[in-house]
Write a protein that binds this DNA or RNA. Structure first.
Lengths: 112, 112
DNA sequence: CCGAAGTATTCCTTGACGGGAATATTCTTA
DNA sequence: TAAGAATATTCCCGTCAAGGAATACTTCGG
């Protein structure tokens, strides 16, 4: 499961809201549809996308399905984000990076 | 700038790769196009999307534009992700959440 | 066994998005 | 000032995703 799958699953506003909702605890399809003020089929479709992205799981309770968040995608996102920590913690701030790169560029020019 | 803007900017494979590239340091449009084996106009378009999402900035160097990552969106993503730490650190694992919710549901049923 | 509740699936339509190609813009240099 | 390099923009086209509406499927209660 690659990152773009997870990211595009989350990029849709309704699906992002579904994930936010499920953060509070498991919910059925109908409950989700109600909270988001969308129709049941749309809720099912969005949940299908989230499921295929590995972001939710569900358990069958009679004729209801109780959806729940899965932890793996969040771990994965956090792992990916960690690679950028040097940048957003500004150990190297953007000016540093820019100046350093300018120097690189200058060196390369002098080689020719 | 909301989360879905950032997420959909990252959801496109080429744009995700651009971000990964810029993690190593600033690059010009042409360099980015070369690395990704895409044509210059497409690189420009993707950079435009990333720019409007606040993910990159650029400095003008003669007739070149040197693009660089911005830290804010990454901070924002990390902040958002933090809300889910209870889940992916499995302090409450999914089974716990499920059982707890089942109890809730049971209580609600008995009220009627 | 029948009807109703809860959910999934299908079909259709529309809008947004990405790539290709051509062109416009800006800056440098000779 | 003309040519060329680097980049942005526009137009066209094909594809895909999301919503609406209708329908199928499953399970429970009477």
């Amino acid at each position: 499961m690659d990152y773009t799958t997870i990211l595009s699953a989350l990029a849709e506003p309704n699906r992002l809201q579904i994930v936010e909702l499920l953060r509070m605890g498991p919910l059925t399809v109908g409950e989700i549809a109600d909270h988001l003020h969308i129709r049941q089929p749309q809720a099912s479709k969005h949940l299908r996308v989230l499921f295929k992205a590995g972001m939710v799981e569900f358990s069958v309770e009679a004729n209801r399905r109780i959806y729940n968040l899965r932890s793996e995608p969040f771990k994965a996102l956090d792992l990916w984000l960690k690679k950028y920590r040097d940048i957003w913690e500004e150990k190297f701030d953007n000016l540093d990076r820019y100046l350093h790169d300018l120097q690189q560029r200058e060196n390369k020019r002098n080689e020719n």
